[in-house]
């Protein structure tokens, strides 16, 4: 079970409160697999985290876990054991910017 923290706008869009808990099915839990699983459960999030065409992280979205910025990790990099074990959340957030 992987815990995912969404930014407020995406919580509202997905109509969830608190953390999202995902059972990720696959040999190795990666950023890509977590996001695929998240979007499969909440299809309204398609395109809001990753570009619909390129599949790349949107420029103003960041991924944090275990006090590390994982945003620029290759999407198939295994996630930290603490995230895979559910001891730490995988945090998706909007970059700090004006407006």
């Amino acid at each position: 079970m992987i815990r995912v923290v969404l930014p407020a706008h995406l919580k509202n869009l997905a109509q969830v409160t608190g953390e999202v808990r995902l059972d990720v099915i696959g040999p190795v839990a990666t950023q890509r697999l977590v996001l695929d699983t998240l979007e499969a459960r909440y299809p309204m999030l398609l395109g809001t985290i990753r570009d619909r065409q390129s599949g790349r992280r949107r420029a103003f979205v960041r991924f944090y876990a275990c006090e590390e910025d994982l945003s620029n990790d290759p999407p198939d990099t295994p996630l930290p054991d603490e995230v895979v074990g559910g001891r730490e959340p995988f945090i998706i957030l909007g970059a700090m910017a004006g407006g």
Partner: peptide
């Protein structure tokens, strides 16, 4: 600018909304 484009649809004059294709 953060989360891209969504299209929302209401079938009851704006009382409720649902995201459709984007």
């Amino acid at each position: 600018g953060w989360f891209g484009q969504l299209i929302q649809r209401s079938d009851d004059g704006g009382k409720s909304w649902n995201p459709v294709g984007n």
